[in-house]
Computed example of a mutant assay.
Amino acid sequence: MKIPNFKTNESGLNRFFGPLEAKVMNILWAGDEMPIKDVQQRLEREKAMNFNTVMTVMNRLVEKGILRKRTEGRSSYYRPVQSREEFLQTQSKELTNELMEEFGPLVVSHMLDALDEADEDLIQKLEQKIQKWKKGQ
């Protein structure tokens, strides 16, 4: 699943989702499968939230392939298709591939420049990955 509108001027999950979508996803990633009413109640701790608004957002997330919906009797239960970690892994990979396709060597150069600010563990992981990649060539 690819999120089509990556927002560079936002931060965190708001790069991929609208503000309410991001809040819904955080709630669902923190818990188990749940109905709209439970999500609405958790959102209401911050601000009064209309049930129909929450339902619309959650159903749009189902349409986008982000949430899975299961109906039991008259109740519908929602859960994320991927864990938060899997989602971020997928999206960062998609974004990296798109940047490489469009900008190629410039992206690699800028990523290397960004390593000046990276911690030593990240640099070691990168070195290990490069060594593995070289052995596979």
Rank of each mutant, 00 (worst) to 15 (best):
M1P: 09
M1Q: 11
M1Y: 14
P4V: 09
F6H: 12
K7E: 04
K7Q: 12
N9H: 13
N9Y: 08
E10F: 06
S11R: 13
G12T: 08
N14L: 09
N14A: 15
R15Y: 08
F16M: 09
F16E: 07
G18K: 14
L20E: 11
L20T: 15
L20P: 02
L20W: 02
L20I: 15
E21I: 03
A22Y: 06
M25R: 04
M25S: 02
I27F: 06
I27A: 04
I27W: 06
L28C: 01
W29K: 06
W29S: 08
W29L: 08
A30Q: 04
G31W: 01
G31A: 04
E33D: 10
M34R: 01
P35N: 10
P35E: 05
I36M: 02
D38V: 09
Q40A: 06
Q40R: 11
R42Q: 11
K47Y: 12
M49T: 15
F51Y: 15
N52M: 07
V54C: 11
T56K: 10
V57I: 10
R60L: 08
R60Y: 03
R60F: 03
L61M: 10
V62C: 00
E63V: 08
E63Y: 06
G65Q: 10
G65M: 10
I66T: 05
R70W: 00
T71I: 14
R74H: 11
R74Y: 14
R74W: 06
R74K: 11
S75H: 14
S75G: 05
S76K: 03
Y77S: 00
Y77I: 01
Y78P: 01
R79T: 06
R79F: 03
P80V: 06
P80F: 00
P80E: 07
V81R: 07
R84S: 05
E86T: 05
F87Q: 06
F87T: 08
F87N: 05
Q89C: 09
T90E: 15
Q91A: 05
Q91R: 07
Q91W: 02
S92Y: 14
S92V: 08
S92D: 04
K93D: 05
K93E: 14
E94H: 08
E94A: 04
E94M: 00
N97S: 05
E98Q: 08
L99Q: 06
L99N: 02
M100V: 13
M100R: 13
P105A: 12
S109E: 13
S109G: 07
S109M: 12
D113P: 00
A114L: 15
A114K: 13
A114D: 15
D116P: 00
D116C: 03
D119K: 13
D119H: 09
D119I: 00
D121Y: 12
D121E: 14
L122R: 09
I123W: 03
L126C: 03
Q128A: 14
Q128M: 08
K129V: 02
K129G: 09
I130N: 00
W133A: 04
W133C: 02
G136L: 11
